[in-house]
C-alpha cells in the first residue's frame, strides 16, 4: 500500500479532494480544487432551518467539489450509499483492505476527536479513511481540519456515517476510478471562473449570489432588536458561525478563492487575475469586519443595531457585484 500523507486544510471537502488527488499522483493545492470546481458562492436559504435559524452558505452545497472536479480532471468518482449500516461498514473495510483511500461523509457530532464545543449535528463533514490500526481495529482518518491524522473507534465512525437529519450521509463513501490527468489549464480555468461569476451574478433565485447577500441584509434589518434581542442575537450569530467557524478558510471562503486566482494568474500568465485576487482579499477582510461588528453587538460591547449590520452587508454586496463583473471580463 502506498504511504498516505496527511495535510491540514482550511475546508474539509477541498482538503479531502486535494489529499485524494495527490495520493493518486496529481498534486493540486486545496485552493485549486476549490476554484476548479467553482465552489465559491453565497446562498441565504430562509426555508432550510438549522436549530430554527436559516441556513447561510458561502460556498456551493456539499459534494459540489467532489463532483465538479470530475470533468476538468477527466476523473470518475464512484459514490456509494447504504441502507444497512453493516453493509456500509463491510464495504469500507473491503476498500481499505484493497489499499484504497476512501472519502467519507460524516456528522461532526459523533466524531469524538473533535473539540466538544464544535460538535453540532452538522452532517456534511468530509474525512478520508486510509487504514486501520491492526491491534485496536480503529480507523485511521485524515480529517482535513485536524493538524495530524486521527483515529476513530469503529462504533463512533459508524454513528457518524449513518447520522440522520438534514443532509444525512447514508454511509456515503467515495473514491476515484481511473487516474486523474493534469488538465489543459487554458481551457478549464477560464471555464471554472466563468461558472463562478454566473453563480454569483445570474442565479435565477434572488437568494443566491450577490442578490442573496442583499436579501440577507433585508432579513437582518427586519429583526426586532427592541422586543426580541435574544432571537436577533442568535440570528446574526448564526450568520457569522457559518462564515467563520470550523473549516472555512476565513472571510466566508473569499481568501481561499483569492489564493486560487493567484495560481490561475500564473498558470495562464494573466497578471490581471492577480489584481483581482487583491480585490477579493479586501472583500474577505470586509466579511471579517462584518463578523467583528456582529460579535461586538452579541456581547453588548456595541449597542444591538441590525441596521448597521445590514448596511455593512449591502456594502459587501456592492463590492462583490463589481468584483465578479470584473472577473467575468478578465476570464
Amino acid at each position: 500500500m502506498m504511504a498516505f500523507q496527511h495535510s491540514q486544510a482550511s475546508h474539509c471537502e477541498s482538503g479531502v479532494m486535494a489529499s485524494m488527488l495527490r495520493h493518486h499522483g496529481l498534486p493540486l493545492s486545496e485552493p485549486m480544487t476549490f476554484g476548479l470546481a467553482s465552489a465559491l458562492s453565497f446562498a441565504y436559504l430562509p426555508i432550510v432551518k438549522i436549530n430554527g435559524l436559516p441556513l447561510v452558505g458561502y460556498r456551493m452545497p456539499p459534494k459540489f467539489i467532489i463532483k465538479g472536479l470530475q470533468k476538468p480532471l477527466g476523473l470518475k468518482m464512484r459514490f456509494e450509499t447504504f441502507r444497512q449500516p453493516a453493509a456500509g461498514v463491510a464495504r469500507l473495510n473491503e476498500l481499505l483492505d484493497a489499499g484504497q483511500v476512501v472519502g467519507l461523509q460524516t456528522s461532526v457530532f459523533w466524531l469524538p476527536y473533535l473539540p466538544a464545543d464544535l460538535r453540532f449535528h452538522f452532517n456534511a463533514h468530509n474525512v478520508l479513511a486510509f487504514g486501520r490500526d491492526r491491534a485496536s481495529g480503529d480507523y485511521l482518518l485524515s480529517d482535513p481540519v485536524a493538524e495530524t491524522p486521527v483515529s476513530c473507534a469503529p462504533a463512533d465512525l459508524q454513528r457518524a456515517r449513518f447520522a440522520k437529519g438534514v443532509l444525512a450521509p447514508k454511509g456515503l463513501l467515495y473514491y476515484p476510478v481511473g487516474k486523474p490527468q493534469t488538465p489543459d489549464w487554458q481551457k478549464v480555468l477560464p471555464a471554472a471562473i466563468k461558472k463562478t461569476t454566473r453563480i454569483m451574478l445570474d442565479a435565477p433565485l434572488p437568494i443566491i449570489g450577490v442578490r442573496g447577500i442583499r436579501r440577507l441584509a433585508k432579513a437582518i434589518e427586519r429583526l426586532d432588536a427592541k422586543n426580541d434581542a435574544a432571537r436577533t442575537k442568535l440570528f446574526i450569530g448564526q450568520v457569522v458561525r457559518m462564515q467563520e467557524e470550523i473549516g472555512t478558510g476565513g472571510g466566508g471562503f473569499r481568501f481561499i478563492y483569492a489564493s486560487f486566482l493567484q495560481e490561475a494568474a500564473e498558470l495562464l500568465a494573466r497578471p490581471a487575475l492577480n489584481e483581482l485576487a487583491e480585490q477579493l482579499i479586501d472583500i474577505g477582510d470586509e466579511w471579517r469586519e462584518f463578523a467583528l461588528l456582529t460579535a461586538r453587538q452579541i456581547r453588548d460591547r456595541d449597542p444591538l443595531a441590525p441596521a448597521a449590520l445590514a448596511d455593512k452587508l449591502r456594502l459587501i454586496a456592492e463590492r462583490e457585484h463589481g468584483f465578479f463583473h470584473a472577473l467575468r471580463r478578465a476570464a
Partner: peptide, 24 residues
C-alpha cells in the same frame, strides 16, 4: 503578496459566536 496557509490559534469573534450557540 502570495496567499498561503497559516495556522491560527483562534479568533475571539469565533469564540463568541460558538460560545453563544453552545450556551443556548
Amino acid at each position: 503578496g502570495k496567499m498561503h496557509l497559516v495556522q491560527s490559534a483562534g479568533w475571539e469573534v469565533e469564540e463568541i459566536v460558538t460560545r453563544q450557540a453552545v450556551d443556548d
